[in-house]
Write a protein that binds this DNA or RNA. Structure first.
Lengths: 173, 173
DNA sequence: ATGAACTTTCAGTAATTACTGAAATCAGAT
DNA sequence: ATCTGATTTCAGTAATTACTGAAAGTTCAT
């Protein structure tokens, strides 16, 4: 039986790899998801150089993706006193991660879709032909649904963990 | 003021384009999303050739993406009697679309992630070092959350529109 | 069996997206 | 002002993903 630290590294590697694949299936890029997985399971903050080394990626790539993760609110920059370098630390609370991803995806994906739907709805408001009316009605249906999803996103995004758990129990308990 | 059919075509084009962009931001390919948008707003079934013509894409491309959409359960093949050709028709009910997408994404993305998490959890079950314990705990947290999400997906995937509305009202009303 | 109408596959190519590495820039210490 | 240790940018390149078009396959009528 191999020693524990070595086994841990192996398992962690598997996790990082799979998280990367998963990220890629969603719209997120593989490296960004891998860095996130790495930091989520790091026992301490990491520097850009450490990330570069572990994942064997270039400085530019590491830099870009670390900053993107900061943009998503999934990791934050920490500075050590006396050190000039930046270090990174991931949010580890799962509920918090979910909230931030939900908020960000809503902002980037749902909101623009909603705008288009509203345009298309408005532009066909007054149509009289059966086709025009049918199209308009489809836009109404979509807009209703997506704006509902958007509101849910807002709700969840501001909900505390405890509240969410209670709510979940009520629904699925 | 231009005539209604022409205006409708313009608006519909905008919708198709934007739906394609949205699809691309999610993991779905642009063309597939465009075809879906096209069929969702079609007043009648469409053939492969019609789709090719409207979107100006090749036969191979149209074919592949139409079949993928069938695989997602978002459109279905209809045959007209006397005609040998296949025609396609989209599910237009928004709730039904949502259910099918939820079901499919769960199957393709959530379930495999869950398997990895369970592996990583099991592989670190017995660890004694602080790092091993911390990693294990993180896997437990993630597994709990993702399996919860998975269960939600199942629930929603089998829920009827009316039930869902009532539930939503209870939560967000 | 032959052929017409249609569907499916796939090798080659185009388009898109991600990554590298080196140069430019920045910020604090001397 | 200069140097040092770091961050940021970006032109060029690599990798990935999507698309084309033509050939092969299928199905049904004759």
């Amino acid at each position: 039986m191999s020693d524990e630290p070595a086994r841990l590294e192996e398992v962690r590697d598997e996790f990082v790899t799979q998280w990367g694949i998963m990220g890629a299936q969603w719209g997120i890029n593989r490296t960004m998801a891998q860095i996130h997985a790495l930091l989520m399971t790091a026992s301490d903050v990491m520097s850009t150089d450490e990330v570069m080394e572990v994942l064997e990626i270039s400085r530019g790539n590491a830099h870009t993706n670390l900053k993107d993760l900061v943009g998503w609110g999934l990791i934050k920059i920490v500075t050590k006193k006396g050190e000039r370098k930046e270090f990174f630390e991931a949010e580890k609370d799962v509920w918090e991660i979910f909230r931030r991803v939900a908020r960000e995806r809503k902002r980037r994906e749902i909101d623009p879709a909603l705008e288009t739907l509203r345009n298309c709805k408005a532009a066909t408001e007054d149509m009289k032909t059966p086709n025009g009316k049918a199209f308009h009605e489809q836009m109404v249906q979509l807009e209703d649904f997506v704006s509902f999803a958007s509101k849910m996103g807002d709700r969840v995004g501001t909900m505390q963990h405890g509240k969410a758990i209670k709510l979940a129990m009520k629904i699925f308990g």
